[in-house]
Design a binder for these strands. Structure first.
Length: 137
DNA sequence: GCCAACGTTGGC
DNA sequence: GCCAACGTTGGC
């Protein structure tokens, strides 16, 4: 199975990238959107993930990897919602702002731009690589 | 099962 | 604070 690439969004006042770095690993819970849930289900251990901060910051800030595939979200009321576990790989030396992403032709079709409310989305390999490079990684 | 009304998210 | 996008809810 080849590595898949993903993009997750987070409101940093809720749980921020530095929290993940500090914790070393976290359960990515609380996703309550069916499309995002389907993406969580498709994640495999070892998949690469980029973490984006919404709100004030609006930038891709870090790189993580999937360390546990989808399992029932313990924070959900009903059945059917899932969480994965993520571990940090590294902070981007230069966070990549939304404005930069929008200015890149290659990145214009990613879900962040096309569908800003989707909190978990797939990335193509070249998109992932470009974002990493823009971030100085 | 359709669709209008409403709520939420997130950028500006 | 406003607005666009989109998801959810509830009446029919």
């Amino acid at each position: 199975m080849t590595t898949q690439y993903w993009f997750v969004k987070q409101e940093p006042s809720d749980y921020a990238w530095p929290d993940l770095v500090r914790d070393g690993r976290t359960a990515w819970t609380g996703v309550r959107n069916p499309a995002a849930r389907n993406h969580l289900r498709a994640m495999a251990v070892g998949d690469a993930v980029l973490v984006y901060h919404t709100g004030e910051e609006k930038a891709v800030v870090g790189r993580a990897r999937v360390v546990r595939a989808a399992y029932p979200d313990p924070t959900a009321d009903g059945a059917g919602w899932v969480a994965v576990d993520l571990a940090p790989v590294g902070s981007l030396p230069r966070p990549v702002p939304l404005a930069t992403i929008k200015a890149e032709a290659l990145l214009r079709s990613i879900a962040l731009v096309r569908q800003p409310r989707l909190s978990v989305a797939p990335l193509r390999g070249p998109e992932f690589t470009r974002l990493l490079r823009l971030g100085g990684a």
